[in-house]
């Protein structure tokens, strides 16, 4: 599943103000809600679901990257966005490093295949150091969109 099929570009945040884990999750879910991707009366419930998932084990997978996610019945297709924190946020990552790059994903519970395909694409692209470095250095949402488009056109991973 390509980025353009689930990343909502109106909700991309390249200048996260949050300084801790819960605030980052709140800021990104808030951004998805503000851009009309999530129902506002479900917002708190989705935040709590993502936080609860983090309690099972951090989705900070190392190298300054985290993939906070949940499955939630209020969405009918995978909804994702990207957040960048230039200073990094403490996220209890596997390698103990702060996280600069966040891929948030909210998937419908009854479509596990779609969730897997979105994760598959994210993980494939994240294995490319150039892709990660370009994203972390992005200054505008437009920069991020362009990098995602290039990734969708297989310009990073063969």
């Amino acid at each position: 599943m390509k980025f353009c099929n689930f990343v909502k570009s109106d909700a991309i945040k390249v200048d996260l103000i949050a300084k801790d884990k819960e605030s980052v999750i709140r800021e990104l879910v808030g951004s998805l809600t503000a851009s009309g991707q999530l129902k506002s009366d479900e917002q708190e419930n989705i935040i709590q679901a993502i936080l609860k998932r983090e309690e099972l084990g951090s989705t900070g997978i190392g190298r300054g990257i985290a993939v906070p996610h949940t499955k939630h019945p209020s969405v009918t297709e995978p909804i994702g966005t990207i957040g960048i924190s230039p200073d990094g946020v403490e996220f209890q990552s596997l390698d103990g490093e702060k996280v600069q790059l966040f891929f948030m994903l909210i998937s419908p519970p009854d479509r596990p295949g779609d969730h897997l395909r979105a994760l598959e694409n994210i993980s494939k692209q994240l294995q490319d150091d150039v892709f990660c470095r370009f994203l972390k250095q992005s200054k505008t949402a437009e920069d991020v969109k362009q990098i995602l488009e290039e990734a969708d056109n297989n310009q990073f991973v063969s």
Binding site: L94, P112, G113, L116, L119, E120, S123, K124, L126, Q127
Partner: peptide, 12 residues
């Protein structure tokens, strides 16, 4: 590697 395992996209 968690990331590598995810690249398999292995469904049920």
């Amino acid at each position: 590697s968690v990331l590598s395992i995810l690249t398999l996209g292995a469904a049920q």
